[in-house]
Each structure stands twice: as C-alpha cells, then as structure tokens.
Write a protein that binds this DNA or RNA. Sequence first.
RNA 1: GGUGGGGUUCCCGAGUGGUCAAAGGGGGCAGACUGUAAAUCUGUUGUCAAACGGCUUCGGAGGUUCAAAUCCUCCCCCCACCA
Length: 425
Amino acid sequence: MGRVLDSLKQRGMFSQVTNEAEVAKLLDTPGNAIYVGFDPTADSLHVGHMLPIMGLAMLQRAGHIPIALVGGATGMVGDPSGRSTERNLLTADEVRHNSECIRKQLMHFLDFSGSNAAIMENNADWTEKLTAIEWLRDVGKHFTINYMLAKESVKRRVEDRESGVSYTEFSYMILQANDFLQLFRRHNCRLQAGGSDQWGNITAGIDLIRRVTGAEAFGITFPLVTTSSGEKFGKSAGNAVWLDPARTSPYRFYQYWLQTEDADVEKFLGFFSFLPWEEIQAISAEHMAAPERRVGQRRLAEEVTRLVHGEAELQRAMNASKALFGGSLNGLEKRDLDDIFADVPSATMDRSDMATGIGIVDLLVKSGMCASNGEARRMVQGGGIYVNNERVGEPAATFGPDALLADSVIVLRSGKKNYRLVRFG
RNA sequence: GGUGGGGUUCCCGAGUGGUCAAAGGGGGCAGACUGUAAAUCUGUUGUCAAACGGCUUCGGAGGUUCAAAUCCUCCCCCCACCA
C-alpha cells in the first residue's frame, strides 16, 4: 500500500496531502484522473512551473490520467495566492494567446495517446458561459465569507492595509473550486495537485465537491523548490529560465542546470528527471566521491534538456559547452563556430569597423556586452574580459582582422560563463 | 472631506542650502581561491571623458538663491488617524 505515494515522498516531491491513507490507495489504483492547473500569465512556462508538471507526468507513468487545466478563465482574474500585491489584468487576447502557448509546452511532458492519455482542458469552457446570477446562486451559495477570509492567501492580504485585496482576486478561489467540481463531473477527477501555495484553493474545491455531490475528493501539494544557498530557483542573471527556446536558448537552459550547486543535485534529479530513485542514489554517490567532475550536474542537465528540448538540441548544447569551456577556440572551422554559437547571444558588426583595429571598449559596447563605456572600461580593468578566451587587461587594447576566428567572428566573454559572439559581415 | 506622516539611485534606507552622483545595507557584476559548486575575502556598481572636468538624477511642474535632494507655490500618488 502506498507504493506510488511513497516514491513521491522518497523524492521529496510532496509537502501536504489532505488524506494520506486514501490518497495512497487512490494512487495505487491506476486509471484515476488527476488534475493540475496552470495560469496563463505569460506565453511560456518557466522552470519554476516544472515540479507540478513533473509530478503530473510521473503520475501518468504510474498509470493515471493526467488532466492539465489551462486557466483561460481564471487567468482573467488573477490568483492572490502567494502574492502580496494585486495583479495587473491581462486582456482576453493575451490570455487566449498564452493559453495556447502553454498548452503546446505541456505536450512535451505528457503523453496524449494510449489508454491513460492525458487530457487538456480550459476552464474558460465552463466558466465563460455562467451568468453572474447562476454563479452567485450555484457556486457562491456554498461558500461563506467567513470561510474565504480564513484562507491564508486572502487573510494576509486582508490584514495588510498597504495592499488589500480586490473583490476580483478575493473571488478567485471559488472559481478554482468550481473547476475542480467540473472536472470531477466530467472526468471523475478526485485528486487535484499543485504548488504548495495552492493548498487553500485546492481545499476549497474539495469542500465544494462535498457540499454539492457528497463525494470525497483529495488534494496533494508539491513543495516550493528552493536552492541550498538561498538563490532564487529558476533565475539566471535575474531572468527566469523559460521552457520556450525563443526566450531561453537550449544552450542557456542546459547551462542553468549544469551550474546547479552540489547540494541540490540529488534533489533536482529527483524532481526533474524520471530516473529511478536507486539510479539517482548511485549518481549522487558517484558525484559526491569526486564533485569536481560534476557527474551529477551533467546528468541533470542532460536529462532535463532532453526532456524539454529534445535530443538534437541537447547535443548542440553539449557540444557548445564543451567547446566554450574546454579551452582554445583556435583552429575551429566556421561551420563549427556557427554551430557552437547558434544559441549564444550574438551581434553583427560591419567589417570596415575593425579594418584598422577596434578598441576593446568600443567592441564591448557595440556588441551589447556592456551597457556603457564606463562599465566596459571597469570590466576590462578588473580583468573580467576575454577575447577569444584570452584575457584583455588593457582598456586601450585594439583588435584588427588578425583577431578574427575563421576570418569572421570574435568571441567575447565576461567572467567565467558569459559569452557573446560578434560576427563581422 | 479633515488632520498628520511620507514619495531619494536596482531594492531597503540615511541625508533638511554648498564639503552630494548622494552614507550604510541588500542585490548585481567582476577578481582571488576553486570544480562552470558552495563558503570566504577584495574591487566595483548614473553617464560622457585617458584625465581635468562636464552632463542627467532625489514623485511632477514652476519659483527663491551665486548655489536646491534639502527652502517656497501648485499638482500627482501612498500611508495613518478622524469623518
């Protein structure tokens, strides 16, 4: 009993369940529908969304039917959970566009064929049709204000005089509760999963199902992903790491995972790969025996990049990483360079700009590597700038045509890992 | 609507006429040490300039002054208490 739940527990993948014994039983009986909701606040998911997605995908592998609910309706309102300020409302067009993009990304993780094929739903389908009167009488009647005010997501905002909470966001939880009820009716879905900030919304749905139908439904939440050193998980240089390759290139995506701290490697392998726990243990043991070899990070980066971007993109990212962090760039063919730097940010400059030699400061600013001349100069003086992987220590340094690799590009680098390619056309 | 407090650089926050491009902390970036890790230490963090020195910035618009983040006027926004 509790095999599936135990394996999630082993990986550290859940923080709360409403009824552990019953959920354990339900998860050990294949064929149950389980739902996770995603709000279309942007046109791509990012790695911060990945844990619930992975959880859902793992449950599908255990024989269950995953339902990915895109919040075409709830996205119009805004979830106050875990937020201290009111959201800006999105337009209907934005929500529609975002919903469609997110739907496509979820297809990478879930299997939409077979006997337990994943199901995609959009809560706009049942929410938009409701009239205000129906809404208040059929759904609103089941909630007391007292109950809603007691929810953590709302409570904090009500008590905080600085921000407050609008009636709109206050109502969010009953919209989501109604989603659960609708999915229960349509797909006999009795379990909702979500991030730990979703607890209040999930339990609201469970209560609604009980009041309306008398049936018992359940909830399970995944933990908040944190890093050991307290860095924000899912951010790289202040930017979110997106699943959309147009927003975060596969190379950067791969690098993000490769740069994981030792202390997080095992945990992240458990969260973000489908590898069996025993294998993760073995990798982790090997890693800790010789951490400088970065066995764990490599495996993690490979697994996650393959899952999100596919084998071909993974190979490109790995090749690029090998070349960039491997040493000399001399002797590489133009074709290799193009391939290696396909994903690396690049700039194009006119060849005549450097015919007589271009100053390093100019080069850094024109290529977009540095924001101002002053910054560029400071970086060079501080020893943080490399051209073709060789340090430039002198702000007056200039580069002419003989600095071109394969007669066409210059590789700029600041610090250890920040590359930029300048093409001369 | 009334009364009081407040809006400063990426964030928090000091600064109440010149010595202010503005303390301190956080964050960011870079260096050293390393392993594309963590911790630690160091430097740096408006912009132009090699430098001297300019220029733009303290909610907005005006004004006083040789000189304004600092004083005055009007306006906008936030908060507290009262109604």
